[in-house]
Design a protein around this nucleic acid. Sequence first.
DNA 1: TACAATTGCTTTAACGTTTTACGAAACTAT
DNA 2: ATAGTTTCGTAAAACGTTAAAGCAATTGTA
Lengths: 341, 341
Amino acid sequence: MKQKATLKQIAKELNVSVSTVSKALSNSPEISEPTKIKVQEFAKLKNYKPNNIAVNLKSKRSKTIGVIIPNILNPFFAKVFSGIEKGANDKGYNVITCISNESLEKEIHAMEMLSNGTIDGFILSISEETQKEQEFKHFKEAMSDDLPIVMFDRISDEVTCDKVIVDDFEASKDAVNHLIKLKCKNIALVSSIDNLSVGKLRAEGYIRALVDNKYTINEDIIIRTDNPDDFDERLKKLFDTKTIDGIFALDEHASVMAMKAAIKRGIKIPEELSIIGFADGVWSRRLTPSLSTISQHGPEIGEAAAEMLIKRLEAKEGEEPDYETRTIKTELRQRESTRKL
Amino acid sequence: MKQKATLKQIAKELNVSVSTVSKALSNSPEISEPTKIKVQEFAKLKNYKPNNIAVNLKSKRSKTIGVIIPNILNPFFAKVFSGIEKGANDKGYNVITCISNESLEKEIHAMEMLSNGTIDGFILSISEETQKEQEFKHFKEAMSDDLPIVMFDRISDEVTCDKVIVDDFEASKDAVNHLIKLKCKNIALVSSIDNLSVGKLRAEGYIRALVDNKYTINEDIIIRTDNPDDFDERLKKLFDTKTIDGIFALDEHASVMAMKAAIKRGIKIPEELSIIGFADGVWSRRLTPSLSTISQHGPEIGEAAAEMLIKRLEAKEGEEPDYETRTIKTELRQRESTRKL
DNA sequence: TACAATTGCTTTAACGTTTTACGAAACTAT
DNA sequence: ATAGTTTCGTAAAACGTTAAAGCAATTGTA
């Protein structure tokens, strides 16, 4: 193992001072052209790279962003993550990732682990348990410790910080309006994420669309739960006892289970039943029939979050922008599970 | 913004020296009990946390692992990643993630970005382009710069380092043997990842199983390509011109496309056609019929990689373990796309 | 020629830790 | 009482970098 080149070594070998080397490498005007060239060439020869940790210590910033994701296996989060990573790298920032696994404790632990100079700020989506417990102290502490947070998708109104969300309410309203335009008369709502803030918002959009179109709300064809087993059971009952010609599904699990259940009963999709669901994976396209979805533009969400955080981090003291909540537009992707207009 | 507590501040406020504070907090026997208590309580009050960057600079280690993943949307990599993250966190290490997006250039760039003290070592899977170009200089450089690498899944024999792989050859042989036991006579091989080392290994396993069972290799029912469009076209032709009663698919795309094509032609699965495919997502279970798969135990791969890297990092100078290639067993998960024996 | 300004480099301090070497006081042993 | 040892703490150096301040020697100006 050859050891790493440092300013000190280079300085000694060239018989100049450390600061001469430092300045020469940063092209300071204080250093003469010949010396600069000499130093720069020697540094290149030795493959000198400034030690990042020392630079961080000096500058008191790490150029690193802490990202906390509830579940990386959820393709929505994976997409957002790739957006964050891209947005950060483009500006020369690194990304340290922690997975909360929907656990409040892991979320707190991850934040503590990083709140010691390791990172300059957080981008995160709140874990399920945290939302259930309504426990937000750790977020507030980070904010007051001058570690800004950008929340995405699953946010909390109780924390004052930058946020990036999807227009869940509008998106749901649009989707249900679309089903209504397709002449669906009995539109079921199926959700297995009723514990999440986004789940509630989406449900409200459904209600609003029905009300706006003078439909009556039929609780018998609404499934809202946060328990997959409970969901599957109620879904079965729904198909056994009710006739429906439209389904609006609030999450990927609900979308797919509803579709499978319908196919099993020999219901023709989309002729007899139209389905629209929230989904971000590559799979909605590959299903038979392919699923019409609401796409949430995960990468854009991630890039927006990274951009907002970095803007704040690089703002001059006292010139930080106001806290902002940015909304990323969704898109209704019509595939085979809905009739053409 | 209240500023962070440092040793220096605490020392001043308590009228002791910086090193006293440092030692008191690390419970050194050099400090008397009363002083220790005084310092520790005051530190807790001030919510003191040692500045990680300073500690890193002093110790010349960052307790951070650099992870380079070709594509986080691929559920296999997502699973491995979650294993790495867990394995690392359990030992007090952080994980900095870069996504190479299958690009050699991004891979090199990511490694350079991190090779300056930011991380202590790498865990990575080689990008598609890198494998195609057979360009491994950047890996060798990192190794000789004392930044150990652990490669997983997509590895290169040209680089001497720790590796974690799946027994692709054995797994494929077992899967095809299983199809043969099910009395399949014409077993097609379909692959859209023939550019990857793992794709080639899996194909070899298929051949070997056929040979071992005295089957003749029929090139007409073998599709090996790395181009999805080419794949889809050849797959169509395969079903149009050949009769097959078994399919062995080397990747998720191939698995699903083959199944869709069969269903479209009204072929009964599994009665007339049995399918086994490599797949790691949650979706193989949700397909109709659900897909029998070879599961690769992604999280275990990740944990093994993290463990091997950390073991090396924490070994005493001169006592580093020999380079090792660990093989994680796969598992054949029988679902609805294969007949029961 | 004298003085000021500029050039080109060095010295020094700093970032926040850890750690080695040292020193004063208080014991212990003879 | 004197030397030796222990106890408890401090001072200083170091990690690798940046940057402000300092200082000769050279150049410019009148």
